[in-house]
Design a protein around this nucleic acid. Structure first.
Lengths: 225, 225
DNA sequence: GACGATGCTGAAGATCCGCTGAAGACCTGA
DNA sequence: TCAGGTCTTCAGCGGATCTTCAGCATCGTC
């Protein structure tokens, strides 16, 4: 579960990062509306925790812009309890849930999990690309009806590519989102796993769904290759 | 990254030009609303830094006219006051971001970069020029439905020209923006790649989308040639 | 038509990029 | 601790790609 916390009070933000990481979430931080928006559009988060009062661009605007940009992440708004910011408005701009400050950490985690469940159920479970089927929920993959056994990494990689089927995805981006690693990790790692993936879902079937886009990364053919 | 700074205080404007150029931006200046509007409609800028208080035509008006004219450049407004009203008004007229004077140069650069990222992500996925289709996200190109295989450089070049379809783009500009290289690199490099591009997207189809504008560079025909 | 400036293009060497087999580290469960 | 599977690192290969160069073509001007 990838979570983005957009919160300008740095101590609170860091406390949340610490606590949520301990709960098993993968947490990134942004400290103002604009960088939050930028991160959220650049990366695929499951849930975004969004403070309403932010420097630069307030939470409402971040939220509505995210929705306008087609984001389907779950959005949980943090509202200060002074009545100035209407919670109904938060929901109107496309938020999924809200929480009044100050809040208990346990409640936040519970809400996040509830949200994640709801989001999970509205996110596509299965991606069908020709005769290649990727089932994110069951973590299974079949090619022409034949089940294909994949290792966790291989599946995560395939799942990531499948969610962006037809698009070229850079190795750097793959490293960040599948490996959850910094920008200076080895792109060869991706190459090795791509190679392994091809050997399982393409080569035995004489297909080529996993395409190399030289200089730009990889692309999973929208028609399954 | 092409930036237009519209600012009537000349010393500030020149300081910005100097500083932003050092940061790697290509910077043009305008000192009043009308000439700013004219420049912005004549040239393809990625981002426009727009002061609100301008002689002639104020920033709000410049901004809304630009949007009315279909400009999709990122617009960053410079507001003198720190009030909510300025912020809301600026965003409502179509600005993407704002910054209150006085501002720190570092912050401006950060905001410009953030804005550029967002603009990049909202840029059109596909450019259709007659039967020539350039898909930036998938990094594919088709002519009359036939897929055309391009090398990374060729694609970057075509993509660049396609985003400015109908405009003449100089070799120098191409070198800067596609090759990301200094002004003293060899323009022949561009010629060689243009030649290769034509051999792939024009010659086999008996078309001439890539046009030479003698002394001024190249232009991609808006109708695909 | 001659001339200089500008653009085109084939060839070649250098460079870059991605692929892959193998080895060892690592993790996990018994 | 061991066994089995998985992951990362490394190094070398092979081919795609880029740049440079040189000669030729084309354009505009005189």
């Amino acid at each position: 579960m990838r979570v983005l916390v957009v919160e300008d009070e740095r101590r609170l933000a860091q406390a949340l990062q610490l606590g949520l990481t301990a709960e098993g979430f993968t947490v990134d931080l942004a400290h103002d509306g604009l960088s939050g928006l930028a991160r959220a559009t650049d990366h695929a988060y499951d849930v975004i925790v969004l403070d309403i009062m932010l420097p630069g661009l307030n939470g409402y605007r971040v939220c509505s812009r995210l929705r306008a940009a087609g984001s389907d992440a779950g959005i949980l708004m943090l509202t200060a309890k002074d009545g100035e910011w209407d919670e109904a408005e938060a929901l109107d701009t496309g938020a999924d849930d809200f929480l009044s400050k100050p809040f208990s950490f346990v409640v936040l985690v519970a809400r996040l999990n509830a949200l994640a469940r709801r989001i999970g159920s509205r996110a596509p479970r299965r991606t069908v690309l020709g005769d290649l089927v990727v089932d994110s929920a069951a973590r299974t993959c079949t090619r022409a009806g034949t089940p294909v056994a994949l290792t966790p990494r291989e599946f995560a990689l395939l799942d990531h590519l499948a969610r962006r089927a037809g698009e070229a995805v850079s190795k750097r981006q793959i490293l960040e989102e599948v490996w959850d690693s910094g920008p200076n990790s080895d792109p060869n790692t991706v190459e090795v796993h791509i190679s392994a993936l091809r050997r399982k879902i393409d080569t035995p079937f004489g297909r080529a769904a996993v395409q190399t886009v030289r200089g730009a990364g990889y692309r999973l053919a929208a028609d399954g290759g």
